[in-house]
Simulated assay, not measured.
Amino acid sequence: GASVVLAESLGSIAGYMCSEGEQKVVGLEINANHVRAARSGVVKGICKPIYLGRRQQVWNIEVFNEQGKLCCTSRLTTAVLFE
């Protein structure tokens, strides 16, 4: 659960940073594959764009544990709303 919250937060922030003016970014879909648990320590999330369109964005987010091992890979799709 926590990995998906982190993934959605990172993707939403990235989407906002790629928006212009009064545009808003909202989540449409998120999926995640949990590879291993991160029961303690610090985790690191890396968010990269897969697709940055005018009305839609797709983000790939990977979450790693302190040893650099993949814990979760996630894909977030967002919609770009125009005012």
Score class of each variant (00 low, 15 high):
G21D: 14
P49G: 06
V80R: 11
Q67S: 15
S12N: 10
F82D: 06
Y16G: 03
I50V: 14
H34V: 01
A7Y: 04
G1L: 13
V43A: 12
A38H: 04
L70K: 10
V43C: 13
C47V: 13
E62K: 13
N60Y: 10
S9I: 08
Q56F: 06
E62A: 11
G1P: 07
C18I: 01
E83R: 12
V4T: 08
F82G: 00
S12G: 13
G53D: 03
Q57M: 15
A79R: 11
Q56W: 02
G53T: 02
V80S: 08
H34I: 01
T78A: 13
L6P: 00
S40I: 02
V26Q: 06
S3E: 00
V4E: 03
G11Q: 04
R36Y: 05
Q67C: 10
A14G: 05
V25P: 01
A37H: 05
Q23S: 03
A79W: 06
E22C: 08
Q56H: 06
G45V: 03
I30L: 15
I13S: 04
V4Y: 06
I13A: 13
C47A: 12
N60S: 15
G21M: 09
G15F: 14
R55Q: 11
N65F: 02
G21W: 08
Y51C: 07
V80A: 10
Q57K: 09
K48W: 01
V4L: 12
E62L: 04
I61R: 06
N60F: 10
I13Q: 07
R54A: 12
C47H: 06
V26E: 05
A79I: 03
C71N: 05
C18H: 15
M17R: 15
I13R: 08
K48Y: 03
V43E: 00
S40L: 09
G15N: 09
Q57E: 05
M17K: 14
V58R: 03
K44N: 09
L6S: 05
A37T: 02
